[in-house]
Amino acid sequence: MPFFSRTWGLLRSLAIYHGIPWRAAQLRRFYAPVVPAGGLAFDVGAHAGNRVRAFRALGARVVAVEPQPDFVALLSRWFARDAGVTVLPVALGREAGQAQLLASEATPTVSTLSADWAQRAGATASFQGVRWSPGPVVPVTTLDALMAQHGRPDFIKIDVEGFELEVLQGLSQPVPALSFEFLAPVRDLALGCIDRLEALGRYRYQWSVGEQLRLQPEVALDADAMRAWLRGLPDDAPSGDILARLDGEAGAQAGGLTAAAIKG
């Protein structure tokens, strides 16, 4: 049964992230303002690799970070001949070491390193029916270590199911742009991410709901306004991603991001 459950979970993930014909073009338009040609992107929680493909199509080098062995095998096969993609079979956290993955075999993209997040998110309607069980012990490194080895990224996408703040605790310098997930019932994690980023530099913020790939609002918010928006969300609000850019980059490219969001 575990084998069939894992296989079904992988096939379902591939259908969701690669089965919509126009989604690849949407992703390219959405990320183009923050992932420059010739630049570097870190995809933390690369999962089924649709963002890796988008970043490569935009001409950026990509470091794909993914601790789940099944996804690592897929990514390694797909990008084996692409010198612009480095697949790392690790997780990220505040310090190097090891951690046990909580695996969701039927829905592998919500596997997590955070037992607290699994308990809290699992109690919500959005995760009804999702079950986690002890998975493999995986190596953990940090964003600082990745940057020391691969260079300072232009953009970091972080999608690690409740471990986003832990990942950012392993970053000691500002980066031009990054995104992290928010989920209303556990919004304290997203608020913590904002606090962490503001300790590194001054950022401007926008959000995108679900997989809509549309940024809101048109004019990026400062940290206080972003916190207020998060605190005002009802618990049943849909999840999404928050895009944060250093204040200088945000001002320079605001028009491009708005146009990309509308086209998406």
Rank of each mutant, 00 (worst) to 15 (best):
A80R: 15
L200I: 10
K263M: 12
Q206I: 06
V209T: 14
A73L: 13
A80F: 13
E211V: 03
L146E: 03
T7V: 05
D70P: 04
Q128A: 15
F163M: 06
A254K: 00
G45E: 04
Q253W: 09
P36R: 11
W132K: 07
E164T: 01
G9Q: 03
Q212E: 14
I156N: 04
V209N: 05
R81G: 08
Q128K: 13
E211M: 12
M226W: 00
S172K: 07
R53I: 05
F71L: 08
L221F: 00
A225D: 14
P134L: 07
G240R: 01
L27A: 08
A25K: 13
L221W: 12
D235H: 09
A121P: 07
E181T: 11
L11S: 12
P69V: 12
T141P: 03
P238R: 08
G122S: 05
E181M: 09
A228E: 13
G84D: 13
S208M: 12
V160A: 10
A228I: 06
V219N: 02
A91P: 00
A64L: 13
P21K: 11
E181P: 04
A260V: 02
F42G: 03
G170I: 08
L183I: 09
H18V: 05
V63M: 02
V72C: 15
F163I: 02
P234F: 12
A57S: 14
H18Y: 01
L40V: 07
F180N: 06
L92T: 05
S239V: 01
A106H: 12
Q149V: 13
I16Y: 11
W22Y: 11
Y205H: 00
A73N: 03
Y205E: 06
A148S: 15
G240K: 01
T112S: 15
F4T: 14
